[in-house]
């Protein structure tokens, strides 16, 4: 049962972090949180679909279908996170009026729709990706009634722990970033996006499309990837004990726009706000 707790927890943690930080971002900019329920529901449906068609997906594109789907979902999440980063900057500028101001003009509603779509998109893709693996794992026990019970219980426990960690992270993020919302918010989005991009490179190397190279360093002696800290860092910043040069380059390329965005906002001339 312990192994099922760990397996489900690992997947739930990755999705929970994304959900909790985006919920916090929405909360801090005055958005209603109802988008999250829809996103979780859609993500769940999608993850069931993916798990159901996993054999066909795996066989497609000369056996590279699974990785290609993963790369596509990760890319969509990264694009959504970048859009949300821009949204945070504009919210800090006062360009986007929050719901508290109760303004219902059409341009305002369009902007709101965009940000809700970005938030929902990111969560749906994250939950689909992680959830499908959990369903595939749990479904394998349907044939085995003896092992099914502890596996499902372990899965529920793992899900619960993941959700709890997400809640802790949500409140922790609200507490920390209330004072420095822009910097902390964009920093977390940047690190998560960077971590996802590292996974994209790994998937492409696995299919042979990208050539793998020797790792640049090996920090597994300091923080092992399969330790608790390693797993937390993996979910949060995409920690890799043995990153290749390409992964480092891609990480920097994905994180940089976020940093540039926040620095640019910090030092630009103040606009005339109404």
């Amino acid at each position: 049962m312990l192994s099922s707790v760990i397996i489900v927890l690992r997947e739930a943690l990755e999705a929970a972090l994304i959900v909790s930080i985006l919920l916090a971002v929405g909360r801090l900019t005055g958005l209603r949180s109802r988008w999250c329920a829809l996103a979780l529901f859609l993500g769940l449906m999608n993850s069931w679909l993916i798990a159901g068609f996993s054999s066909q997906i795996a066989d497609s594109f000369d056996g590279a279908g699974q990785e290609l789907l993963s790369v596509s979902l990760l890319s969509i999440i990264i694009i959504c996170l970048m859009g949300i980063g821009i949204y945070i900057v504009r919210a800090m500028n006062g360009v986007i009026v929050t719901l508290r101001d109760n303004i219902h003009s059409t341009p305002y509603q369009n902007r709101q729709l965009t940000i809700y779509l970005l938030l929902i998109g990111a969560v749906v893709c994250a939950v689909s990706r992680e959830g499908s693996e959990v369903w595939i794992y749990l479904a394998s026990f349907l044939h085995d009634s003896v092992a099914a019970y502890p596996a499902f219980i372990g899965g529920a426990i793992g899900m619960g722990i993941g959700a709890s960690l997400g809640v802790i992270f949500y409140y922790g993020f609200l507490f920390v970033s209330y004072q420095h919302f822009l910097f902390v918010g964009i920093l977390f989005l940047a690190l998560i996006a960077g971590g996802l991009s590292v996974q994209i490179v790994q998937d492409l190397m696995q299919t042979g499309f990208l050539d793998s190279t020797m790792p640049v360093w090996d920090t597994s002696g300091w923080v092992a990837e399969n330790s608790l800290l390693g797993q937390l860092l993996y979910a949060l910043i995409g920690y890799e004990a043995r990153p290749t040069a390409l992964q480092l380059i891609v990480y920097v390329c994905v994180v940089s726009p976020f940093i540039v965005l926040s620095v640019w906002h910090r030092y630009k001339k103040p606009e005339n706000n109404s």
Partner: peptide, 28 residues
Amino acid sequence: TPEEFESYELNREKIIMGGAKATIFIGP
């Protein structure tokens, strides 16, 4: 039943459905 081939040292993880074959490139 499916299995997931995983290795931290090789940085590879792939789910392989029951009865299926999967291709994984490693190295150099």
